[in-house]
Design a protein around this nucleic acid. Structure first.
Length: 668
DNA sequence: GCAAGGTC
C-alpha cells in the first residue's frame, strides 16, 4: 500500500482534513510540539495511488526564516550597505525545529507528500518549506499539492482527488519578498540608528527601524497630521429655503450647494425674494433600498471593532483568534467577501435561533426570509468570509469575546437577510432663477437593520405632498454662512483602510505594523472626546456635508489652523471611556518622514509606492513575466541608490531631526 | 538591537 504524508499549514486544518478523508476514523498521536498531532488513517486517492495509508500532520505557518551569517551580526562593521549583497542563509526557526523533524521522520516512511497549505502565495511558500523538510528525510519523495478554499467535506474530498503541483513561481515571488524585506529593513534600520544617534537627546538610545510596511504606515499618519495642521478654513455662503406644510418643516437645499463669494450669494438671494413664489418643477417618488453589508473580511472586522467596540485592531484580532481556536467562528484572517455557493448557510443560521438577542431574527430567516448574501469582489481562494460556526452561549465567553462574537454573528445574519426597503421622494423647485431640492425617505421594511445596530437609515423624514406646477410662498429663505473645516486626525479605522487600499501589510499583519510604529515612538494615540464619530470631517456648515480641505494639500510649512494636540491625554490601549483614538505622529515620526521627503528622491521612503511596486513585481513573477533573479537584481540596485543618496543627503535628515525633535529653527 | 510573513 502506498504511504502518503499530508501536511497542512496549521493544526486546525490538519484535523479537519483528516476527519473528512478518514470519515472520522483516524488514530491520533502526539508529537514533540504541544499543538501538533499526527493523524493516521486509510484513504483512497484514486489513480494512480489508489488505497493509501496516510499520515496527516501540520506546521504552524512558516518553518524557516532568513538571516545573515555571524560576521554580519555586528552593527558597527561591516557598513550597513554591505547587507544588500551579503550572503543570506535560510534556517529552520528555533521554535520550529521539532516540527521540521517530525516531517523529516514521517517522510522516511512515505513515498508521496501532499501539501495542504492555504491557497495563497505565502501558503505556496510554506509548501516549499515543507517540501524541503520532507526531502531531508526522503530525497526521492513524490510531491503533490491539494488546492482547496474551505474545509467543507465535499470540497476537501474532491481536492484530494485533483492533486496538482506546487507552483514554483509563487514560491519564488514570496522568497523575493522575504529577501528584500530582510536586506532593506536591516540595512536602513542600521543606517538610521547609527547615523542619528550621535545627535543625542532622546535619539541616543532609540532603535530607529525602517520597514517596507512600517514606514508607509507612519507616512499616512504624518500626512494627515500636516493636512490638519496646515488647514486654512475658508468662509462660504449659501441659500436655504424652508417651507412648512401639513405640520412638516421641509428644508430645501440649494443646487449650487455654496459659493465662496458673499456678494454673489446675496444677489442671487435677492432675486429669489423678488420672485416671491417658488414653483414646483419635479416630484419624484421611487422605491429605494439600503443594501445589507457584504460578508465580513478581516479588514472590515478590525474597522468595525475600532469603531463600535472600542478595541484596537490588534485586540480585536487576538479575541477573534481565541474564538476561532474554540471553534466558535471561522478563520479570522481572510480577504474574501463572498460565500462559496456550496456552503450550507441556512444550517449556520439555524444554530443561532436559540439566542435570546437575535434568535427570533434567525428563526424568521429559517422560516423563509433567508436570502443569499451579496457577493463581493474579493476572493483570496484560501478562506471564506468570517462567520459563526457554532452557537456560543454568553456564559461560555468573556466580555470581549462576547462582543466580537456578537458582531460577527449579527453581521452574518444581516448578510443572510434582505436589504432594507423604503420609498424616496425628491422635490425640486425653482425660486427666482435658482433651483432647490428636498429629499425624503420613509423606511418601509427594516429587514437586516433589525439585527444590525451598527447601521441606521438616517435622513428618513417623510415629505408632505407637492404637485408639479404648483406655486407656493416659502415660509422662510435665508443666506447661510459657514466655513470649511479640517479633517480629523487618523482613526485606526482610517489607517487600516489606507493600508488596505495601498497594499501595505496583509490582513494578518496590519494591526502589528500599527503597534510597531507606536512601540518605536514614531506615533502616539490621543483620545478625541465626544464619542463615536468616525473620523470623517466634522462639518460645521449647515447642510451636513463634509468638505474636502481646499488649499492645504501639500502646502506644508505654513503653520496655521489647529495646532498640535500633543499635550492631550495619552490614549490608553484598553479604550475605556468615551472617545475614539486618533493617531498623531511624534516629533520623531515627523522628522523621519519629513527628512526623507525633503531629500531629492523620485519616490520617498515614506510613501507607499515602493511597497506597491514590490507587490506588482511579485505578481509579475507569479504570472511568469519576470523572474525572482531579475526582480532581486532590479530592486536591490534601486534601493542601493536610495541608500547612497540618503547617505549623501544625510544632513537634510539630520536637520529635520534638529528642527522637530530638538525644536531648533534652522531648516536644511 | 534590525523586516515581514505565517501561526498558537
Amino acid at each position: 500500500m502506498t504511504r502518503v504524508l499530508c501536511v497542512a499549514e496549521k493544526p486546525s486544518i490538519a484535523k479537519a482534513v483528516a476527519g473528512h478523508l478518514s470519515g472520522g476514523h483516524y488514530q491520533t498521536s502526539n508529537t514533540r510540539d504541544a499543538y501538533i498531532k499526527n493523524y493516521t488513517f486509510d484513504f483512497d486517492f484514486g489513480p494512480p495511488w489508489g488505497h493509501c495509508s496516510v499520515t496527516m500532520t501540520a506546521v504552524k505557518g512558516h518553518l524557516t526564516t532568513v538571516e545573515f551569517p555571524g560576521d554580519y551580526k555586528q552593527w558597527e562593521y561591516p557598513p550597513p550597505d554591505r547587507l544588500f549583497d551579503a550572503p543570506i542563509m535560510t534556517v529552520v526557526s528555533s521554535d520550529s525545529k521539532s516540527i521540521a523533524k517530525n516531517i523529516e521522520d514521517q517522510a522516511r516512511h512515505a513515498s508521496a507528500l501532499v501539501i495542504w497549505t492555504d491557497c495563497d502565495r505565502e501558503g505556496e511558500h510554506i509548501g516549499s518549506e515543507i517540501r524541503d523538510a520532507a526531502r531531508k528525510g526522503n530525497a526521492r519523495i513524490q510531491v503533490k499539492r491539494a488546492r482547496f478554499s474551505n474545509v467543507e467535506r465535499a470540497h476537501i474530498l474532491s481536492a484530494a482527488r485533483r492533486l496538482t503541483a506546487l507552483d514554483d513561481r509563487q514560491v519564488d515571488a514570496v522568497s523575493a519578498r522575504i529577501e528584500l524585506d530582510l536586506r532593506i529593513g536591516y540595512a536602513f534600520t542600521r543606517f538610521l540608528t547609527l547615523n542619528l544617534r550621535p545627535l543625542g537627546g532622546p535619539l541616543s538610545n532609540l532603535t530607529l527601524s525602517y520597514g517596507s510596511c512600517q514606514f508607509p504606515t507612519l507616512g499616512f499618519v504624518v500626512d494627515r497630521y500636516f493636512r490638519v495642521k496646515n488647514f486654512v478654513p475658508e468662509p462660504f455662503w449659501g441659500i436655504k429655503v424652508m417651507h412648512e406644510r401639513d405640520g412638516i418643516q421641509v428644508g430645501f437645499n440649494w443646487s449650487r450647494h455654496r459659493l465662496f463669494d458673499r456678494m454673489s450669494v446675496v444677489i442671487l438671494y435677492e432675486r429669489c425674494l423678488a420672485a416671491r413664489t417658488a414653483k414646483v418643477t419635479k416630484v419624484q417618488e421611487k422605491p429605494t433600498k439600503k443594501w445589507k453589508p457584504l460578508p465580513l473580511t478581516t479588514v472590515e472586522l478590525q474597522k468595525m471593532a475600532t469603531r463600535f467596540l472600542r478595541m484596537s485592531g490588534q485586540q480585536a484580532m487576538t479575541v477573534a483568534e481565541k474564538l476561532y481556536n474554540k471553534g466558535f467562528i471561522s478563520y479570522p484572517r481572510t480577504e474574501t467577501d463572498r460565500f462559496d455557493k456550496g456552503m450550507d448557510l441556512r444550517a449556520l443560521v439555524r444554530k443561532q435561533t436559540q439566542d435570546n438577542r437575535w434568535g427570533s431574527f434567525a428563526q424568521a430567516l429559517v422560516d423563509g426570509a433567508f436570502q443569499q448574501p451579496r457577493q463581493g469582489r474579493h476572493d483570496d481562494k484560501a478562506h471564506p468570509p468570517i462567520h459563526p460556526i457554532t452557537y456560543a452561549a454568553p456564559a461560555a465567553l468573556d466580555d470581549n469575546e462576547k462582543r466580537v462574537y456578537e458582531l460577527v454573528t449579527r453581521r452574518f445574519l444581516a448578510c443572510c437577510s434582505e436589504d432594507a426597503r423604503g420609498m424616496a421622494t425628491d422635490v425640486e423647485i425653482l425660486y427666482g432663477d435658482e433651483t432647490f431640492t428636498a429629499h425624503g425617505v420613509i423606511v418601509l421594511e427594516r429587514n437586516y437593520l433589525d439585527v444590525y445596530p451598527y447601521e441606521n437609515w438616517t435622513g428618513t423624514a417623510q415629505l408632505p405632498r407637492f404637485t408639479v406646477g404648483e406655486r407656493f410662498e416659502p415660509t422662510e429663505a435665508m443666506v447661510t454662512e459657514g466655513k470649511t473645516s479640517p479633517p480629523g486626525y487618523l482613526t485606526e479605522a482610517d489607517l487600516i483602510a489606507l493600508m488596505d487600499a495601498n497594499g501595505i501589510g496583509t490582513d494578518a499583519t496590519m494591526a502589528e505594523h500599527i503597534e510597531k510604529i507606536q512601540e518605536r515612538q514614531y506615533v502616539q494615540t490621543v483620545v478625541r472626546r465626544g464619542g463615536g464619530n468616525q473620523g470623517a470631517a466634522a462639518a460645521d456648515d449647515d447642510d451636513g456635508e463634509a468638505d474636502p480641505p481646499p488649499a492645504a494639500r501639500g502646502g506644508r510649512g505654513r503653520a496655521r489652523g489647529r495646532g498640535s494636540r500633543g499635550g492631550a491625554a495619552r490614549g490608553g490601549r484598553g479604550g475605556g471611556g468615551g472617545g475614539v483614538r486618533e493617531f498623531i505622529p511624534t516629533s520623531l515620526g515627523v522628522a523621519l518622514i519629513e527628512g526623507f521627503d525633503r531629500m531629492h528622491f523620485e519616490t520617498s521612503l515614506g510613501k507607499p509606492f515602493l511597497r506597491k511596486e514590490m507587490e506588482l513585481k511579485m505578481k509579475a513573477i507569479c504570472e511568469g513575466r519576470t523572474t525572482k533573479q531579475v526582480v532581486l537584481h532590479e530592486s536591490l540596485s534601486e534601493y542601493r541608490q536610495v541608500y547612497e543618496q540618503s547617505r549623501a543627503e544625510l544632513n537634510i535628515l539630520k536637520a529635520a531631526c534638529r528642527q522637530y525633535v530638538f525644536q531648533q529653527q534652522n531648516g536644511a
